[in-house]
């Protein structure tokens, strides 16, 4: 589904990613772990198409297509979803309008009939239950006045509405209490199918107790320095990132 080959990325002239290789197959969950500043969020944002990240070399092939050639909105419509680390507040844009527009853009792209307001609301109410979303949140402006936990739940709620092929969760666990974490994880697990894949970007192992990865990669200083099964997350939890740093000669 996704192949990243020798990817180098710079931000404002500073090299952040230095030769990433990654292969994600349908049905898999990959965890990308690493200390702060290792480049995890950069990788997530490059996949979503954020413009200030400059790809200096390497390639990303998504479903046989050169992902780097696509605009962010086209990537989204082709099934890539980024759950933001810091969801943006957009005063004046009502949640319902935003969600309906996003869903209908996806439907149009797939050649399906756009939802009417009534059809959309019905669908939305079902998904709200999945994420235990308080209905009053969808009456507000996008993320405006949402608590940290509500913002993160809202991200997964959007994921439930858009049903991506590849979900990228960027630090979705940060700022969540244990109940919210469970709800979010439950949402992500409920959305799993043999056809879709998830990349979980996280600093801590905690989320991986609830969203169990098939592969764990450790990103350090712009490179994947270790890849293994889910046991790697536990080892990291136990030994801390210093272990990785020492192994890599710091």
């Amino acid at each position: 589904m996704l192949t990243i080959k020798d990817l180098y990325v710079s931000v404002e002239g500073k090299e952040i990613l230095k030769g990433i290789n990654l292969e994600v197959k349908p049905g898999e969950i990959h965890a990308i772990m690493g200390p702060n500043g290792s480049g995890k969020s950069t990788l997530a944002n490059v996949l979503a198409g954020k413009e200030e990240f400059e790809v200096t070399s390497g390639e990303i092939i998504y479903e046989g297509e050169d992902l780097l050639e696509l605009e962010p909105e086209d990537r989204a419509k082709k099934g890539i979803f980024l759950s933001f680390q810091y969801p943006v507040e957009i005063p004046g844009v009502p949640m319902v309008n935003f969600l309906k527009t996003a869903v209908n853009e996806h439907r149009k792209f797939r050649g399906e009939k756009e939802f009417t307001a009534g059809e959309f609301l019905k669908m939305m109410r079902q998904k709200e239950q999945l994420l235990d979303m308080n209905a009053h949140l969808t009456n507000r402006s996008v993320n405006e006045g949402f608590s940290g936990g509500e913002k993160k739940k809202n991200e997964i709620f959007q994921m439930a509405l858009l049903q991506p092929k590849l979900g990228i969760l960027d630090e979705t666990d940060s700022g969540l209490d244990i109940d919210a974490l469970k709800t979010v994880a439950h949402g992500v697990n409920a959305l799993r199918t043999p056809e879709n894949a998830t990349i979980v970007v996280t600093h801590y192992q905690r989320l991986l107790e609830y969203i169990v990865p098939d592969h764990v990669h450790v990103l350090y200083n712009g490179k994947i320095v270790k890849s293994s099964g889910k046991e790697l997350a536990l080892e990291l939890e136990e030994k801390g990132y210093d272990w990785i740093k020492q192994e890599n000669g710091v």
Binding site: G49, P72, A76, V88, G92, V93, T101, A102
Partner: peptide, 25 residues
């Protein structure tokens, strides 16, 4: 706001429409 614009685009809303949504807002 470029951050907000990217947020909308990352949900499949094209650049023009996203700008329009923000101006209306």
């Amino acid at each position: 706001d470029e951050e907000a614009l990217f947020y909308l685009r990352a949900r499949g809303i094209d650049d023009k429409k996203a700008r329009l949504m923000m101006m209306n807002a």
